Every structure is written in structure tokens, then in C-alpha cells.
Computed example of a mutant assay.
Amino acid sequence: MGRKVLVLNQDYSALSICSVPKAFLLVYLNKAELVAESEQFTLRTVNDEFPMPSVIRLHRYVSLPYKGVMLTRQNIFKRDSHRCQYCGTPEDLTLDHVLPKSRGGKTSWDNLITACKRCNSRKGDFTPEEANMKLRQKPFKPTFLVFLRDFSGSLEQSWMPFLSKREKVFD
């Protein structure tokens, strides 16, 4: 059961994504309420049938001082659609600093991209302009909401009303 459930805070703001068993448990223990259920799937036991959660809302407000996307290798790959940002291949991927570290480049969302080993070696210790290599897209730091909406894999249609709200809250 690899399906995911959108978890909303008490104020209906997107908080996280969790597994179906975790979401069902939160609803069953009365820690959350079912906001939307899957139209295609149900959860079955020997004696009962339950709606499969798609969106749940916590009964208590969870205060998160910073709601950002962690800078990790996998999150960079997700942002860049698991493609080399120079040639577009999905093979032999690694990370590349647009401005090389040896020249003062930082390890940040705005300076890291996904690159295949071949292009990364070809670029070497140069900037893309100096190596005459064009970036497919400029690196950027995704907001929490954008990351949930665009890079979390498959999205349920029932999530969209909660993921299309104003993003400025999460910056």
C-alpha cells in the first residue's frame, strides 16, 4: 500500500504527507478527522470496510516555526525531475555546484543542480557559461507548498484545494 495521504493542520493548511496506515490510525484514534476519501479504494478488514483516507485534518494545531524543504540529494533530484540539467539524461546522476566550491560556490538550493557524471566532468571547475554548457532551468529553492504540490510524486485530485492556497505563508 504505497498510497499517500495529505495531512492538514487544524487551520486546514498543508502540514505533511503520510502513509495510509498512519492516517487511518490518526482518524481511528480520534486525533484527526477524515476530510476527503479515495474514490477508488477502501480499507477492508475481515468484518468491516472503511473509507481510505486521502486528506485528513488534525484536531490539535501543530506549531511549526519553520516549514521549509530540507536540502538533500534526493530533494535536489526531485526538483530537477531526476534529469541532468545540462543534457537531460536520467543516467548516472550526481550533484554539481553551478559556481564551483573551489571558487566560492555555496552548497545551497540556488547553486546545486542534478548533473550526469559525464557533464559534471566536462564542466569541471568552470561555470556553465565558461564551459559553454547551457542549463535547462535555473536552480531555485522550492517553497514547502510548491514541493508538496509539484515534487511529491503522485497527487490526488482531492489535495488540490489545499495545495493551491497562497504560498507566501511558507517562505
Rank of each mutant, 00 (worst) to 15 (best):
M1W: 10
G2V: 13
G2S: 15
R3W: 12
K4I: 00
V7E: 02
Q10T: 04
S16W: 13
S16N: 14
I17S: 08
C18D: 12
C18M: 14
C18E: 13
K22L: 08
A23D: 00
L25K: 14
V27L: 08
Y28F: 13
K31P: 03
V35L: 07
A36V: 00
E39W: 06
F41D: 05
F41E: 06
T42N: 13
L43M: 11
R44F: 00
T45E: 04
N47S: 14
N47Y: 15
D48N: 14
D48F: 14
E49P: 02
E49W: 06
S54K: 10
I56Y: 03
L58C: 09
H59G: 00
R60H: 12
R60G: 01
S63L: 13
L64N: 09
P65K: 14
P65R: 13
G68F: 05
M70R: 14
M70V: 04
L71F: 09
T72M: 10
Q74A: 11
N75G: 02
N75M: 05
N75D: 02
N75L: 01
I76G: 05
F77K: 09
K78E: 08
D80P: 04
S81T: 01
H82K: 07
H82F: 15
R83Y: 01
C84Y: 02
C87A: 10
P90V: 05
D92H: 14
D92N: 15
L93C: 05
T94N: 10
L95H: 05
L95A: 02
L95R: 04
D96H: 06
L99R: 09
P100C: 09
S102K: 12
R103M: 04
K106L: 12
K106R: 15
K106V: 02
S108M: 08
S108N: 10
I113C: 04
K117H: 10
N120D: 06
S121C: 08
S121L: 13
S121R: 15
K123T: 04
G124M: 08
D125V: 03
F126S: 06
E130A: 12
K134G: 01
K134V: 12
P139W: 02
P142S: 04
F144R: 02
L145I: 11
F147V: 00
F151H: 14
G153I: 07
G153K: 12
L155S: 07
Q157I: 11
Q157L: 12
W159H: 03
M160P: 03
P161I: 01
F162Q: 02
F162H: 07
K165V: 12
K165T: 07
R166V: 01
K168A: 08
D171C: 11
